[in-house]
Nucleic acid binder design. Structure first.
Length: 567
RNA sequence: UGUCCGAUGGUGUAAUGGUAGCACAAGGCCCUUUGGAGGCCUUUGUCAUGGUUCGAAUCCAUGUCGGACAGCCA
């Protein structure tokens, strides 16, 4: 008996990484009572993208691999000036779509504002924090630089009582924005800038999407995040590499306060994808400047965009598994994402015949008015997907690209006098080429080998090429959108000459085909079903712009094409 | 002349002192009523120099290169 796992078991096999090893060791040693509690902590200031998917798969994945594990969804909503409720909803939808469930564990950093304020008072009482009256400019000047130590604020040695009074009056709204901050008293000479008396609270008279006008002071990330983690008794607080230098501050704050837990912060490398930008700031810019149609534009690397384009959650999950988790800051080839997607779509997509750029074909020896219903396979990779009928008649459309009057080398599709097989139908022979006044080919007069239909006496004849087709009288006209990468260079945001990332936008990232011809069965299409238009690629019905009887299809990704044009 | 982190084929990763392996990409072949899928094969790698060791991608030292950090953003 073979003990080798079957392929499907292999794809489900859990792959480990350095973070999972840490978690497993902690569980084994009984640390945290062997509990595993992670969290995914987005700021609701933009849509989630493929980079977040990596973090979602990591945090929810680790939690699901431990029997009592759980992962919290926590909105890091400490900056009311950029956060919106629309983003909260989109984040919830996207995490669910990715296939994860946070159950009752949905939280907001703003849930903890009162506790955080009390902790602030506590820090003041113990002499670990003070109210500083410096302006932002002075604060910046005195902070020093990575190589030059900072100098202490003149307000550093206020009395506890004065600090307590001032902090409470900050909360009460007595001071304008920016007039004062609460600062931790740590070490202005520290080689780590984040330990040079970092700000903990700032004054912002702004309306918060959850707490309304209840607060006019808001905690800063470094202060709110570690305490939120601790209050939720997170065991492993997983974040990206840029927070590595913040870790001493994370630990310092928790050490000063009577918190119920001290989570371990672990950093990993964020995803960088070739030909893509993955920064919320830049994505927001594309949206705001109208360079894309919105956060869910199918060219966007957002989960909403990818979903609309036709990417599947399982394909994205497979990609995340494939790229692994390390501390190496690299650039992942987008081909890896596309491979993961094709692999998934190949198993799921319903095959369809569609002609993007129609060329009319009249079959001279096929009876006028006759219609045959030919059997076609919905998915050769999955017999359970069944079969369908395809109408065939005297007048067809084939792809313009599938005919060449003067064939290139190794072109084995239709040529004058040559034969090609029509998928699921007959062997077709080109008898004559009709051109317009400008010499452009506008129609082909053909004949068909009437014995060559699938199962017929000459069906087995050796014919080099097989092309797709659609019966003209039965075709459904639709709009098809062909997408290409949004940027023309590998690293659009890493330009050494300081050029803006928008310089590299691909002007041909979208091509619209207004009148493609599709086989009639496609009227039943749904935006939840993946399709493969044979020989062309994977397509998804657009959930937004499709109308009854006139669907719009987005090209998700092309088929891998091993035919390279010569000459 | 700061602190922290990192470096394995073109790309992403594995090997946890004991045969450098996998996937993608690239190339070749077979098969095919999708130039898809599938099958087989090939090319290419431990940043450098020392040290420890019977044995080093792994441990140590030094160097080189790369990244993060100077928001009252997260």
């Amino acid at each position: 008996m073979s003990t080798e796992p079957n392929p499907s078991e292999q794809t489900e096999a859990v792959v480990s990484d350095f973070i999972r090893e840490i978690v497993a060791a902690d569980v084994a040693s009984g640390k945290n009572g062997s509990a595993v509690v992670t969290r995914f902590p987005p700021e609701p200031n933009g849509y989630l993208h493929i980079g977040h998917a990596k973090s979602i798969c990591l945090n929810f994945g680790i939690a699901s691999e431990h029997s009592e594990g759980r992962c919290h969804l926590r909105f890091d909503d400490t900056n009311p000036t950029r956060e919106e409720i629309e983003y909260v909803h989109s984040i919830q939808e996207d995490v669910r779509w990715m296939g994860f469930d946070w159950g009752v564990n949905q939280f907001y950093a703003s849930d903890y504002f009162e506790k955080l304020f009390q902790f602030g008072l506590e820090l003041i009482r113990s002499g670990r924090a003070y109210v500083c009256d410096q302006s932002a400019e002075d604060f910046k000047r005195d902070r020093g630089t990575p190589t030059v130590p900072g100098t202490p604020s003149p307000w550093r040695n206020r009395t506890v009582d004065e600090n307590l009074d001032l902090f409470q009056r900050m909360r009460a709204g007595e001071f304008p924005d920016g007039a004062r901050t609460l600062r931790a008293k740590i070490d202005m000479g520290s080689p780590n800038i984040h330990l040079r008396d970092p700000g903990l609270y700032r004054i912002r008279h702004a309306h918060h999407h959850r707490t309304g006008d209840q607060w006019c002071i808001y905690p800063i990330y470094d202060y709110a995040h570690c305490l939120s983690d601790a209050l939720e008794k997170i065991t492993h607080s997983i974040c990206t590499l840029e927070f590595e230098v913040h870790r001493p501050l994370y630990d310092w704050i928790l050490q000063q306060l009577p918190v119920p837990a001290h989570p371990q912060q672990i950093e990993f490398a964020r995803l960088n994808l070739s030909y893509t930008v993955l920064s919320k700031r830049k994505l927001l810019q594309l949206v705001q400047e109208g360079l894309v149609s919105g956060w869910d534009d199918p060219r966007m690397p957002t989960l909403a965009g990818l979903r609309r384009r036709g990417y599947t959650a399982s394909g994205i999950r497979a990609f995340c598994k494939r790229i692994g988790v390390t501390k190496y800051n690299g650039l992942t080839d987008i081909a890896l994402l596309e491979y993961s997607l094709r692999e998934d779509l190949n198993k799921k997509a319903l095959r369809t015949l569609a002609v993007l750029r129609p060329l009319k074909v009249e079959i001279l020896n096929y009876p006028e008015g006759q219609v045959e219903q030919l059997e076609a396979i919905n998915n050769p990779e999955n017999p359970e997907a069944g079969k369908r009928l395809l109408p065939f008649s005297r007048t067809l459309y084939i792809e313009q690209d599938d005919f060449m009057e003067v064939p290139a080398k190794k072109f084995f599709r239709l040529i004058p006098g040559g034969e090609v097989r029509l998928r699921y139908a007959y062997i077709l022979k080109c008898e004559a080429v009709i051109k317009d006044a400008d010499g452009a080919v506008i129609e082909l007069k053909c004949s068909v080998d009437l014995d060559s239909k699938s199962g017929g006496p000459t069906a087995g004849r050796k014919i080099k090429g097989t092309i797709h087709w659609v019966s003209a009288a039965h075709a459904l006209e639709t709009e098809i959108r062909l997408y290409d990468r949004l940027f023309t260079v590998e690293s659009p945001d890493g330009d050494s000459e300081g050029r803006d990332f928008k310089t590299f936008l691909n002007p041909r990232s979208l091509e619209t085909i207004p009148n493609a011809k599709l086989e009639p069965s496609i009227v039943q299409a749904s935006p939840d079903q993946s399709y493969q238009f044979e020989r062309l690629g994977y397509f998804q019905m657009d959930a937004k712009d499709s109308k009854p009887g006139r669907p719009v299809f987005n090209r998700t990704v092309t088929l891998k094409d091993s035919w390279v044009k010569t000459g």
